[in-house]
Every structure is written in structure tokens, then in C-alpha cells.
Amino acid sequence: MSRNTHLVLGATGKTGRRIAARLRLRGTPVRAASRSSRARFDWSDPGTWDAVLQDVVVAYVVPPPVPGPVHQFVVRAEAAGVRRLVLLSGRGADGWGDSAFGLEMLSAEEAVRGSSLEWTVLRASNFAQNFDEDAFHAPLIAGELALPAGAVPEPFIDVEDVADAAVAVLTERRRHAGRVYELSGPRALTFAEAVELISRTSGRPLTYRQITRVEYVSTLVEQGLSEREADQIAEMFVLMGSGLIAETTDDLATVLGRTPRTFEEYVVRAAAAGAWHER
């Protein structure tokens, strides 16, 4: 493996697999690492860390689900000769205050930004792909998405844009050092508006229903999450309802020199691929 290796953690996830593919297409030496990859990496098993850091010049880091491990990972990265870190985080993290949401991302930012390495932080809005690759998908297949989100909109960002931005930051040395980019889509939509666009494009009668936080937590617990995990996820909707992350930004254009993909472009692409067909 080249000594110019680009390490991509979370390589089977929404951003990681897209970033690794883009880097390979460019001819960039890539080590794609995850719990299920040939290059095995597990945040809960520090014994897997050193091997994936060997000969790495820059690493793309997706935080683990708990606060803490990124601090030790950064120490290992420094010792291994890594020069740069690119961290995925959440929109408006500086303004989250004492919220229970995103503690793992805040911890990771503290570790990366406090290190001796060059670093860049990509703070992304909620992914559009959550509607077809993640938690919102199964309810839509069943015909209704119910969440504790009301009239405050969210500038959903296309994961393809996040991957493009990450590759630019990973491969353009120094230009992005010490920068925090707040990445959003080009306009904000309420969840009701987003579901209406999905319904129209897919040709299915899909609905959105606003529920209370208590109802949402109860639903998540019924699906197998712990009360603590459910509370943390529900707290995200409290932050969204405050309007803290409702505004769009120009940071994607700063990184890529173009406007973000629209939610409509995402919906057309996903519907054409059969994302919301009944099963």
C-alpha cells in the first residue's frame, strides 16, 4: 500500500462507501475500513486501529456512537504519522448547548480540533437519503412517516454532495486546513413537504403525521432501542424545532464551486431506482 494512503472509516456507511468509490476512481490509494471490511476497524476494539493507520496520510473519520474513543484514535494517528483528519459532524454543533443530542460528535470535534494535525470538519444537515436508506424508509414503505417535527423546515443535503465535498477536502491539501464547513441543501423543507414530494414522484399515497416527543420515544423503544438512545434521537427534533439549523448555507459552494443538489433531484433519482415501491 502507498505511503500516501487515504483512510476512509465507516467505509460501508452512507458517506464512506461513496467517498471510497470516488477516491478509487481518481486513482487515489484508499484503505476502506469498517467492522465488516477486509481492513477491519471497530471503534470498540482499539486493537484494530493501528493496522489501518499504517502508511496513512489523511483519514476521513465518522464518529462512533459514544463519546470518547476519537481522543485516543487521534493520539494513535499522530504516532502513526497521519498528517490530516477530516471529520463528519452535525450542523450547528457550536450551538447545541447542553442538549443530549450529538455528544459523540462534540467529543470527536474536541479531539480532532485540539490535535496537532491539520484538520477540517464537515458539519452536515440531515441527509436526504434518510428517506430511502435509513430510519425514515420503512415507515414510508408502510405509507406514513410519523415524527415529532412540525413547521420548522430542514435544509436536507444530498449525501452525494457530502461525498463530493469530503473528497475535495481529502485531496486538496492545505486549502481547507482549520476550516469548519456547515453543509446544507439549497432550500429548507418541512417533513410534510418532503413526504409530499416523495409521494408525488413515486406515485404512492404517502402521508406525514406530526406526533409528540413522548410518542416518538415510545415508538423507538418498541423498535428495540433503549430509553436513553431513543431520548437522544428525539432530542435532535428539539434542536430542529428551535430553528437553529433551519437556515441554508453557502459552504458547499465554497468547497465545490457549485450549488448543492436539490431535494427534487434526489427524489427523482431515488424514485426511479424503486426506493419507495411497495414490497
Score class of each variant (00 low, 15 high):
V61A: 12
F41H: 11
L23K: 12
A11I: 05
R22H: 13
R3G: 13
G10Q: 07
K14P: 10
D42T: 00
W96S: 04
L88Q: 08
A77P: 09
D45A: 10
E78K: 01
Q54S: 15
L23A: 05
L103I: 02
G97H: 03
R24H: 10
M105A: 10
L106K: 10
R76V: 08
A59V: 00
A93L: 09
G13T: 01
A108F: 03
S2H: 10
V86G: 05
P65Q: 06
G102F: 04
P29I: 05
S2D: 13
L53C: 08
L88F: 04
V62A: 09
G27S: 09
A39I: 04
S89G: 03
R24Q: 11
A20E: 02
V58L: 11
E104C: 03
R35S: 06
D45I: 03
T28D: 15
G92A: 04
L7P: 03
H6M: 08
S36E: 12
G13I: 02
A21K: 15
V82F: 13
S107L: 00
V74N: 11
E104D: 05
P69Y: 05
R84K: 15
V82R: 15
T28P: 15
A80V: 02
R18E: 15
R24G: 06
V52A: 08
R91N: 02
G95S: 02
V74W: 10
A20R: 01
V58N: 14
H71S: 08
D98S: 00
T5I: 08
R24P: 05
S37D: 07
G92H: 07
A80G: 07
G68E: 05
P46I: 00
D45W: 03
F73V: 07
T28W: 15
A79S: 14
R40K: 11
L103S: 09
M105E: 08
E78V: 00
L88V: 04
G81L: 03
R84Y: 11
D94P: 06
R3M: 11
H71G: 07
S34T: 00
T12R: 14
K14W: 05
W43V: 00
V56Q: 09
G16V: 02
P69Q: 09
D98A: 00
D94K: 07
T5W: 06
S107G: 01
L23C: 05
D55L: 02
